[in-house]
Simulated scan of single mutants.
Amino acid sequence: MSEVLDNLLYSEEHEWAQQGEGRVVRIGITDHAQHLLGDIVFVEFPEVGAAISAGDSVGSIESVKTVSELYSPVSGTVTKINDTLEASPELINDQPYSGGWIFELEISGEFAEAASGLLDAAAYRELIGE
């Protein structure tokens, strides 16, 4: 059974979004997604400074089994990547909601507006059948 945190919002592509300080939003992949991928060995990050739109493919995650696209669940400008994952991509498997976050971006408006198309925890649990 996958862990789904109530304080996050989720995309149908299995990314999560967490509101940070001000207009910063932290992005990662869900526990469910990392289970499907298996042992993660490489992360391709979006470029810091890149303006991205919700739904854009912004990188990829490579596991021993496959390569999966990484999509942004919200629109904004990439402000930071989790460079710890360059040396330790397995953190996504071990800590998908904490140390395994992938990137942060700054949104132009309010979080509620930027995240309006995302799922709450209950809806995400339903999506993944839990």
Rank of each mutant, 00 (worst) to 15 (best):
N82L: 06
V4F: 02
E106D: 13
E12H: 10
T77H: 07
K80V: 05
S63L: 07
Y97A: 03
L91R: 11
G20L: 08
V43W: 13
D94N: 08
G20S: 04
I107A: 02
A123N: 06
G99V: 03
V67S: 03
E90M: 12
H35L: 08
V64Q: 05
E90G: 15
E130P: 02
T84E: 12
L119G: 12
A51T: 15
L9K: 15
T77E: 12
E62Y: 09
A17N: 07
I107V: 09
A115M: 08
A50W: 12
H14A: 14
I27Y: 11
A33K: 04
F45P: 11
A114N: 01
L119F: 08
V24A: 13
D56S: 09
E106K: 13
A115D: 10
A115H: 01
K65Y: 01
Y71K: 13
Y71G: 02
D31M: 07
G28D: 01
F45G: 13
E86R: 11
D31A: 00
S116Q: 14
S116I: 06
D6R: 01
L37K: 00
E3Q: 06
R23M: 03
P73S: 10
I107W: 02
P89I: 11
E104P: 12
D31V: 00
A112T: 15
K80C: 08
A50Q: 15
L127W: 02
L119E: 10
E113I: 07
D39P: 01
I128N: 05
F103S: 09
S2W: 05
V64Y: 08
S53T: 13
D56A: 06
S68I: 03
D39H: 05
L85S: 04
E3H: 03
P73G: 14
K80I: 02
L8Y: 11
Y97F: 13
S75L: 11
Y97C: 00
I102P: 03
A17E: 04
F103R: 04
D94G: 14
S75D: 02
V67I: 13
A54T: 04
S88Y: 11
Y124N: 13
V41T: 10
E86D: 12
S108F: 02
S72A: 14
Y124I: 11
S57H: 01
Y10C: 05
A115N: 01
R23S: 14
A33V: 02
G76H: 00
M1C: 14
Y124E: 14
S68N: 15
H35P: 01
L127H: 12
I40K: 03
W101A: 08
E106Q: 14
A122L: 15
